[in-house]
């Protein structure tokens, strides 16, 4: 009895898989799905134009290739990887984070941090100079050059 139960379970599982197989197979990916991947790539034929909007025949073929790969169940990263090996890394909108390319991502933050440091030091040194000079130096008093505040003061005096 117990054995039959197992067989029955196995058979029903198999039939479930068999019937469900049709759902696992993806329908032809829509243009939108294709474009979602294509917009992250550039094609060497039309330089600096994203692949999803490039009107040339070459790019249309590339988009069809993306469609094929999507229907084979590839995901966006796999497809990008495939295109990068096939046509060179310049198809990627951003250089891959490896080797020399790390410089792209590291140098700007590094320089910005240096900028922040310089600014911070400038502020601090000015602060110390101020304290040496005997506390707050208020050249004209707070906001004397403000036309509005002058008018406001004027108002106060009148009231």
């Amino acid at each position: 009895m117990k054995r039959f139960l197992w067989i029955f379970l196995a058979v029903s599982l198999f039939s479930l898989v068999w019937v469900g197989n049709v759902f696992a197979q993806k329908p032809t990916p829509s243009d939108d799905e294709v474009n979602a991947v294509a917009s992250q790539m550039f094609c060497p034929v039309c330089e600096n134009t994203p692949l999803d909007v490039c009107p040339t025949q070459a790019c249309a073929q590339w988009r069809e290739l993306i469609r094929t790969k999507l229907s084979e169940g590839w995901n966006a990263d796999q497809i990008k990887q495939y295109f990068a090996t096939q046509y060179g890394v310049r198809v990627l909108a951003e250089p891959p984070r490896q080797g020399l390319n790390w410089l792209v991502y590291i140098v700007p933050p590094f320089l910005i941090v240096i900028g922040v440091y310089i600014l911070f030091r400038a502020f601090r040194s000015m602060h110390t100079v101020n304290q040496l000079a005997g506390g707050e130096t208020e050249p004209n008093g707070p906001a004397t050059d403000e036309y509005t505040s002058r008018i406001e003061e004027e108002l106060k005096k009148r009231n």
């Binding site: 060497p44 890394v89 310049r90 990627l92 909108a93 951003e94 250089p95 020399l100």
Partner: peptide
């Protein structure tokens, strides 16, 4: 430009960056 000089391969620094 630097990358192409060093590696000989073109790369794209595009909008996401």
């Amino acid at each position: 430009l630097i990358s192409e000089l060093v590696t000989g391969q073109k790369i794209t620094v595009g909008p996401p960056f």
